[in-house]
């Protein structure tokens, strides 16, 4: 089961903005270049890509909380 890891330390967000739905919900199909979340690092938002194909299995890191580089953000099966 591939884990999607944070490329950088920062703050992880599940949705493009606070008023939008999350990028993915469990059961959604995932393509390799799909964005699954954002990491805010030094006021810059970096898109996190799935990099694998499969079915979204849920976020691991909570929304709007700090993450370290390499932390597992979400799972794809």
């Amino acid at each position: 089961m591939p884990d999607i890891q944070s490329p950088l330390p920062g703050t992880f967000y599940h949705a493009p903005d606070p008023n939008s739905a999350p990028f993915k919900k469990p059961g959604d199909a995932v393509a390799a270049d799909d964005t699954i979340g954002l990491v805010e690092v030094m006021k810059t938002f970096i898109e996190v890509k799935a990099e694998v194909e499969g079915t979204f299995d849920g976020f691991v890191a909570p929304n709007a909380e700090p993450v370290q580089a390499g932390d597992v953000l979400a799972k794809v099966r």
């Binding site: 950088l8 330390p9 920062g10 703050t11 690092v41 030094m42 006021k43 700090p66």
Partner: peptide
């Protein structure tokens, strides 16, 4: 010093 990622650069 570890530069925190939460603020400006």
């Amino acid at each position: 010093y570890q530069i925190p990622p939460f603020y400006d650069s």
